[in-house]
């Protein structure tokens, strides 16, 4: 019990540390950015002398780098991401307003890519038909070689422009609010593809490895059928690496959603990031990066909890393979 508490304590600690590192990197980039620091904070907007002084005081631009670093760190950690100059509203509010739309794509994308990857990966691993295996594995390489934004554009060209079956832009028809299902189809396909392909590959090799383990011989000696061996003994062990991969996959899907939201005009965090980059609304850019990082860290903590539930040897993975004493 104690070991478990220590483990989760360490996990929380390292996640927090990771967040600090990201904030530090962002601060360093901000410092390294060329040009007038005030202008790079507010972007292209004209700055009145009064506003400039206000900013200089607020961000401590008259102080030393070290002091500025701690001021920035302190305000970020207390949830103050600054004010967006384009809308003059708090950055955090703008981002949280978009978070729901991003998650509306990212969560189903994670679920679909994981489940689909597991199913096809298992099929590829256990089939005795080499053509089917090569087909699935090769198809997976093909899928993660497609630039996902280009896939999105082509899907629009085919299904929206040529065939007129599905809408190309936004979350719902013009003037409607909320998210319409038919608006989700193309963005989801686009977002899912590469992670789905990656998961197939991981699941396939993980299942093959799992079915090559010695305990499979024990299962065979009990007189189990191949099916029973695959599902009872192969699966639970093959799933362990899948859980870790799904955790990392959330990060990749969130990053990928920046491109997908841009292609489909999907008003999520990613599109906000792109708009803010174009408007030089630096604080929003940094804010989105921080919020995405937090989402990724939460996903990782959840992954770790699931892993702990799935693998009774919670601590065994911190040792090199097979060195259990």
């Amino acid at each position: 019990m104690k070991a478990v508490l220590i483990h989760y304590g360490k996990l929380l600690g390292s996640s927090f540390l990771l967040l600090l590192v990201v904030i530090t990197i962002l601060f360093a980039l901000l410092e390294a950015a060329p040009g007038d620091p005030v202008q790079s904070l507010v972007g292209d907007a004209p700055v009145s002398e009064q506003f400039r002084e206000q900013l200089v005081a607020a961000y401590g631009l008259d102080r030393s780098v070290v002091e500025r670093y701690f001021i920035y760190m302190g305000s970020v950690l207390t949830g103050d991401l600054g004010t967006s100059f384009t809308t003059q509203t708090p950055v955090l509010d703008r981002i949280l307003g978009r978070l729901g739309n991003t998650l509306a794509l990212a969560i189903p994308a994670t679920v679909i890519s994981t489940l689909g990857g597991i199913i096809l990966g298992v099929i590829a691993a256990r089939t005795r038909n080499p053509l089917l295996d090569t087909g699935i594995s090769g198809g997976a390489v093909g899928m993660f070689s497609i630039p996902n934004f280009w896939l999105g554009l082509m899907l629009i060209a085919i299904f929206s422009v040529q065939l007129g079956w599905l809408p190309a832009q936004g979350t719902a028809s013009y003037g409607q609010s909320g998210i319409a299902l038919e608006h989700m189809v193309l963005p989801l396909i686009t977002l899912v593809t590469s992670q789905f392909a990656y998961n197939i590959r991981v699941m396939r090799s993980s299942m093959i490895e799992s079915l090559g383990q010695d305990f499979v011989d024990t299962a065979r000696s009990k007189g189990l059928s191949y099916r029973q061996i695959v599902w009872r003994h192969g699966m639970p062990n093959a799933m362990l690496p899948m859980i870790t991969i799904t955790g990392y996959g959330v990060g990749l899907i969130l990053a990928g959603s920046v491109l997908v939201e841009r292609v489909f005009g999907w008003p999520g965090m990613g599109l906000l990031l792109v708009e803010s980059i174009n408007n030089n609304d630096t604080l929003v850019v940094l804010g989105v990066a921080i919020v995405i990082t937090v989402c990724i860290l939460i996903a990782n903590i959840l992954t770790d909890i699931v892993y702990g539930l799935a693998d009774p040897r919670l601590r065994a993975r911190f040792r090199p393979k097979g060195s259990e004493s």
């Binding site: 010695d214 305990f215 024990t218 062990n237 362990l240 693998d311 040897r313």
Partner: peptide
Amino acid sequence: IFQDPLTYLNPVI
């Protein structure tokens, strides 16, 4: 009955 008792038991069951 096999030689290596650790690897011949399923670790998650």
